[in-house]
Design a protein around this nucleic acid. Structure first.
Lengths: 216, 216
DNA sequence: AGCGGTAATTATCTTTTGTTAATTTCTGGC
DNA sequence: GCCAGAAATTAACAAAAGATAATTACCGCT
């Protein structure tokens, strides 16, 4: 009896966990992480919860300390913060098939300075980073996946940084329209403006300039 | 004989490698990586080379493809790129005890768009990332160190990004002076200006405004 | 100490952005 | 389909930044 306990226990655990992941979930994750085994997927997402957030609702509030890591299945999330003078500034937009995390909590280990709200009705899969950290550390395949994600996030962040140094506001807007036209359509201009580091009024003028090029 | 070959070979290898790392090097690295064993350090830096670059010299040129990872022991490195119109823009500054890498090569797997030059006589320890990648992947302690570094780089990059969205050019300059006064002193203003996303002329005016606040 | 080249500052002018407020357009809810 | 509130645009003005050029300050080198 005692001999079989270990394996039996594991098998049981897996069965239970697999029940929490629907077949569609498994299929979805397998599509995203092509070279991961179902076992690894279950290990990662077994303790994941699905959450629905309706448009306008706040997902992570300022001051939060829970290390949430979420994958967006449907919808759109905006991270913003409130400047001392009161107006809010968009720092990040995330949409379908993208991960995001309260980065103050996970990266800087401090209460979140940012607020994460849903701009559309949103469905996401969330895990508590504390609970998966061990799994990530001990499973080499998952470790290298985390590494890959960090590299991707870094690349994205560096690219955005470059855009501020190398491009004018107008060029940044044109780049955004070119690279993410669907997002431009889904998000209000006032949020896009602060994301680009300018005011909504200024973005409006830029759009006007683009539509009416100065003829001579 | 054949029984002892493995261990013996390893011991020999270590001895040879340790010879390449001077006692000062070992001490230096131990100070930087407090919880790494000497064995791990040797594994990482055993194949590292020391390079001296004199002020004004280029370390990595545009179009380079070698995945260099370097630790600055002394001196200061500037990464910049040349815009289509011809003027150069500083993207990054790195100095003592900091790592840097040709990030186009390592992160994006493409020829470097940037040029890395020494602004001062510089001494650095360099490794070919291809050669240490296996070591990093297979040694859990080193893996988690790499992870930590990626997180730090990400945090830094995000902070810089935030500064572009949340602060005015003047506030960015004040922040730079406050956070890195020694770097401000070591680097020419024209390089600081483009790092802040403005022109040297504009930085000069900002400095003037700060020195002569508008009295009323 | 003096020379020459570069960096930094200043000046002038143009363009762009920020700010505030008014006006128009859009949109969701009934 | 209408109405209220929000978003986007437009307007008007102030402030800041870009561009170019001239001037001044600085620095390395002999």
């Amino acid at each position: 009896m005692s001999v079989k306990r270990g394996p039996e226990g594991n098998a049981l655990k897996h069965q239970l966990i697999i029940k929490m992941l629907s077949p569609e979930d498994i299929k979805f994750y397998l599509g995203l992480f092509k070279d991961l085994s179902v076992t690894d997927l279950v290990e990662l997402f077994g303790m994941a919860k699905t959450r629905k957030i309706s448009a306008g609702e706040i997902y992570i509030d300022e001051g939060a300390t829970i290390k949430k890591l979420a994958l967006i299945r449907k919808g759109l999330i905006r991270a913003y913060c409130i400047k001392p003078n009161g107006d809010d500034v968009t720092l990040m937009l995330r949409w379908e098939q993208q991960f995001f995390a309260s980065h103050d909590n996970i990266i800087l280990n401090q209460p979140s300075r940012f607020i994460y709200e849903a701009l559309e009705d949103t469905v996401l899969t969330e895990v508590d980073y504390n609970r998966i950290e061990n799994v990530l550390n001990n499973n080499p395949k998952l470790s290298s996946y985390r590494n890959l994600f960090l590299l991707n996030m870094l690349a994205e962040s560096l690219e955005r940084m470059e855009s501020f140094v190398l491009l004018s506001p107008e060029e940044r807007y044109l780049q955004l329209v070119k690279d993410k036209p669907n997002i431009v359509n889904r998000v209000q201009n006032k949020y896009l403006a602060t994301l680009l580091g300018i005011t909504p009024v200024s973005l409006s003028r830029i759009r006007h300039r683009i539509a009416n090029p100065p003829q001579r």
